[in-house]
Amino acid sequence: MTTLETYPTMEDAARAMGADATFLGGGTVVMRAVNEGVATPRLIRVTDPGLAHISTVGEILRLGASVTMADVLAHRDLAFLHPVARQIGGPQVRNMATVAGNLFAEHPYGDFATALLALGAQVTVTGQGGARSVDEVLRDRDRAGLVSAVEIPRPRDVRSFGFRKVSRVKPKGVSVLCIAAYLPRESGRIRGARVAFGAMGPTPLRSSGAERALEGQMLDTATAEGAAAAATEGLSPATDQIATEWYRREVAGVHLKRLLTEMERG
């Protein structure tokens, strides 16, 4: 049996958390477990309306923990993330699912978290000073703590960010894989390449091979081919109902090349 506890602030909620409790955000992940009878005995939620705010501080976009995909789509400053949010679930899911919750969505979900990983987003955790990288949070999600906000550095040039989702059903389908690439350029050369894949491991993962192949290069066909060839380095896809491990490895580079080609054309 699952009981719900409601708290006014994240700090109160953080104090109430424990091994027998799960934080209830938009519900799209946790309520499935409740319906299947496998949820923790306690659910914890927070009613603080401030958590739904999106604010801009300098070059940082700050999204409160209960900002939904629909909120992202309604915000002009987040236009570069609209192609990501638009491809998550159907309209109902986008009205419910939160950006922060997507960090904890299990494979094959987590498309938005993949974009956050590529963008080098930071996460504010309740009761912990300073921000932690998304990389760090994804590495140990069970002990991440309660995320109160996600901070996304605004790309200097929005064309340096690209996203591609591959699914069998359109317009709403689960990822065979998704790819987010952040390729800032200085004098035409890529500096600080970050390429993340979703559904290619237990959490969104960075492709060390693709990043190495892209770093310091001009974004052209040869570079895209080099990155595609090294795409699966750093990834560990699984076989599930959507695709086999073999298939995912086979097509990862193909789709990365297509994404890079699109980005090259701007």
Partner: peptide, 27 residues
């Protein structure tokens, strides 16, 4: 489905479409 896939349970809550199978009633 009880897992937010099919949309047969769609309702609006405060004007937004949501999936009633994924909403805790007391909320």
């Amino acid at each position: 489905c009880g897992q937010g896939t099919c949309g047969a349970c769609t309702v609006t809550i405060d004007g937004q479409t949501q999936l009633s199978c994924l909403v805790l009633a007391e909320t």
